[in-house]
Design a binder for these strands. Structure first.
Lengths: 253, 253
DNA sequence: ACGGTCGTTGCAGAGGACGCAACGACCGGC
DNA sequence: GCCGGTCGTTGCGTCCTCTGCAACGACCGT
């Protein structure tokens, strides 16, 4: 909509790939060097880009501060956090909280496993949307047209033999998830890691977040992990109750 | 430098305080609603702001993704990480890695304590710059004029009785740190938490990052923590060696 | 010393951003 | 149920500001 801002913002993902000098930025934007310079300076003043000692530009620290403040202001996260900690104390495994936003699912909180083997994931990192248990819950609750649109637009990486293969299969999976009110990922992302997840709902019953417990096979088998399901669901319901203002959570939709 | 971009970027910190509607954004920017709308739309297209269900705007998910990619591209971090993990395995305490950037010191990596009592901190979160051990190392190495300028510009919050009280005291502390080649924070931020830190240097000898081990009094006393200093320094030197391309690290400056 | 590359500056012209005013949707009060 | 108020949205004409050019200076390697 606004050409100047549009160009300036296009610099950010470009720099996210790695540091670049003025010429490279100007080229990739398709503008004159002087124009790129002015844009970079403005971004620099706001701390969004940083100029390292070799004069090349890379993303700046303010970006972290902003992302940080943003995540701390999410009220679901604030309410859910103590519940996640308690769940982690009870079962010992890694606990995640995730939300859906504009075609992406991302973790907004995490409590690490007490076992030495830890999953790689990080707050703010986009989730493997076609296989993660939390993603299934969040997508399953989207209004039908949007869900279809999103699912059609996705890629279906073949992480493992049990990864969701294509859009049709995913839609079927989502239907199941919506009915049963919980989701799992049994080795669909990494061969040896399983998750079970349950939804957190708002006052209107819509799913606002999803919570999962993950553990590698070497610690507990998939079957053992599934025995935690009632605990996970109880925790998610407790968060729902608090988040939606003491409205008791229903078991299924 | 560029008015339009400048205005657009000013929206981000504004929204970081919490969600706002169009009118509020326009007011705080001092522009017409239609202008604010155009800017917000552009930000929205790039995923930097998100429009929640009540139509108000807040920061968007792309911000996390960008911050994430940025931190993953930091080569110091990549090299240091395995060393941090090993150090954590050896001593069990929380390990941090931090860098300095434009008047701020921020954590870029962290390995959590294996003890149940954990510090509150998060990757990307700006550090308490007047007291943190890592901040002392990074500031101590700045060129004299910049160091003075930064130190003068800081606030000196009175976190505890042992917090750095003012600029003069901080400059003295930094001189000491520079000479001894390591730093500590003994209850200067939180009464019951102590840290020891050591610098990671680039090929030119400049401090590019700092690494610390933190532990609460209830786990180890300050004196006990200080016995870990040699281990911390050895780890930092190992990172330095690898980062600066096998150049052996010197013990002091 | 020289050509090459790269970042930076000043300027004039034109393209785009700005604010205005008016519309439509929504809400709450009378 | 009507009506005033608020809020987001749209189209448009004017003026601002962003743009690209060209020239300069710094730096590097040949």
């Amino acid at each position: 909509m606004s050409q100047t801002v549009d160009r300036a913002l296009s610099i950010l993902p470009l720099l996210a790939e790695g540091p670049a000098d003025l010429g490279q930025v100007a080229d990739r934007l398709g503008v004159h060097k002087s124009t790129a310079l002015r844009l970079l300076r403005t971004l620099h003043e706001h701390g969004l880009v940083y100029r390292q000692s070799d004069q090349r530009y890379r993303l700046g620290a303010r970006l972290f501060a902003l992302a940080q403040q943003a995540v701390e202001n999410l009220d679901v996260r604030e309410i859910a956090h103590p519940h996640l900690v308690r769940l982690n104390e009870e079962c010992g495994h890694t606990v995640h909280l995730a939300v859906y936003e504009e075609n992406e699912v991302l973790y907004i909180d995490k409590v690490d496993s007490r076992y030495p083997v830890r999953m790689y994931s990080r707050i703010g990192k986009p989730v493997a949307i076609t296989v993660a248990a939390v993603a299934k819950l969040l997508l399953a609750d989207l209004p039908e047209p949007e869900r279809r649109a999103v699912v059609d637009r996705l890629d279906y990486p073949h992480y493992t033999a049990r990864s969701t293969p294509n859009a049709a299969a995913y839609l079927r999976e989502l239907a199941t998830v919506r009915e049963q009110g919980w989701a799992s990922d049994l080795g669909g992302h990494e061969e040896s890691i399983n998750c079970v997840a349950a939804p957190v709902r708002g006052a209107d019953g819509r799913v606002v977040a999803a919570m999962s417990v993950s553990a590698p096979n070497v610690v507990v088998t998939a079957d053992e992990l599934l025995t935690l399901l009632p605990l996970v669901r109880r925790t998610a319901d407790a968060i729902t109750r608090e988040y939606s203002g003491n409205t008791p959570a229903k078991d299924a939709v």
